Computed example of a mutant assay.
Amino acid sequence: MKKLLCAITLVTAASAITPSYLQAAPLDADQQQQVRELVRSTLVENPDILVEAINELRKRELQAQEDARKSSLESRKDQLFNTTDDPFTGNPKGKVAMVYFADYNCGFCKRQDTILEQMVKQYPDLKIIYKELPVLGETSREAAELILAAHASHPDMYQKLHHRLMSKPGGHDSASIAAAFKAEGLDAKALKKKVDNNIRTKVDNNLRLASELGIRGTPAMVFADEVLGGFTNADQLSEKIKSRLN
């Protein structure tokens, strides 16, 4: 079987480099039928060949996706890690920086959030940059815009507001969003007036950036060389951080 495949490969390669005037004439209908029957019988007798081919194709597709993602990360490094107006927690000059995309209506984000708090305490050389990614409806967008408006005038309030919004079980409505801001001494109606084109553009840019990185939902965390899509438990995330600190 291997000899047959090698022969076919050699014939194919030879035909590709042989001058056209020396190449054999195209196969006629009978010859084409014989080739089809040979290929069919070969696959029927050796079905593992097809499985191997599919596995190899999938492997190449995954590698191509990974290469494209790494290229995207490299070209968007400044957008991810070198902005001056994104909220963050942890060490501002930390050795390891991680971008966190989240939605305040996302149940998995609420679970992820407590793990990130743990990571900041456990690793003093970690910086976490927040990127609002409202993908779960109108109230997701409302909460994202309001918290960015609050951050613009009260940057020290962001962390408290973020945790307050994340601490509510289930999804938000406008009333629960307003209540979260009120609990921290801020008026949601007044903040809504401060939601300008800069804030809307910032949210749109976050959505575009996530899409370009292949992020399809929340939570998602991004290191300089890797994208973690979906919920990541404490042990897994701890290993990711430790490996980059060493």
Rank of each mutant, 00 (worst) to 15 (best):
A220T: 02
E117H: 09
E145W: 09
I241V: 15
S71A: 12
R76T: 08
E56F: 08
T114R: 12
A152H: 02
M119G: 01
P155C: 02
H172L: 01
E212I: 01
F81I: 06
F108E: 13
D156A: 01
L161P: 07
P47F: 03
G217T: 01
C106E: 11
L133S: 06
K95R: 00
L38N: 00
K192D: 13
R208G: 04
V99E: 00
A149M: 11
M157L: 10
A64Y: 07
R60F: 05
Y104H: 07
G107Y: 10
N46M: 06
P92R: 01
R36N: 08
G170R: 11
K194W: 05
S176H: 03
C109A: 11
E37Q: 11
E56H: 12
G171E: 13
L136S: 04
F223D: 12
P219S: 03
L136F: 14
E212L: 02
A179T: 07
P26T: 10
N55T: 10
I49P: 01
P169M: 08
N246W: 08
V11Y: 14
N205L: 10
S75Q: 12
L136V: 07
A150G: 08
L62V: 00
S153K: 15
A144F: 03
H172V: 01
A180M: 03
A190K: 15
N246H: 12
K202C: 08
S211E: 03
A220Y: 11
C6R: 15
K240P: 09
N197D: 14
N105T: 12
E184G: 02
P219N: 07
F108I: 05
N246A: 15
D125L: 02
D204H: 09
G170T: 04
K110V: 10
A68G: 11
G171F: 15
L43C: 13
T232H: 06
A24T: 05
I199D: 03
D187I: 12
D67G: 04
G217F: 05
K160S: 09
D196Q: 07
S15C: 06
P124V: 09
G90L: 02
V227F: 09
Y130E: 02
Q33N: 11
N246F: 04
G214T: 02
D85H: 06
I199N: 03
L116V: 10
E138G: 05
E117Q: 10
L191C: 01
A144M: 12
V99P: 05
R141E: 10
A53N: 10
G214H: 04
M166E: 04
Q23E: 01
D30E: 00
D113E: 10
K127V: 00
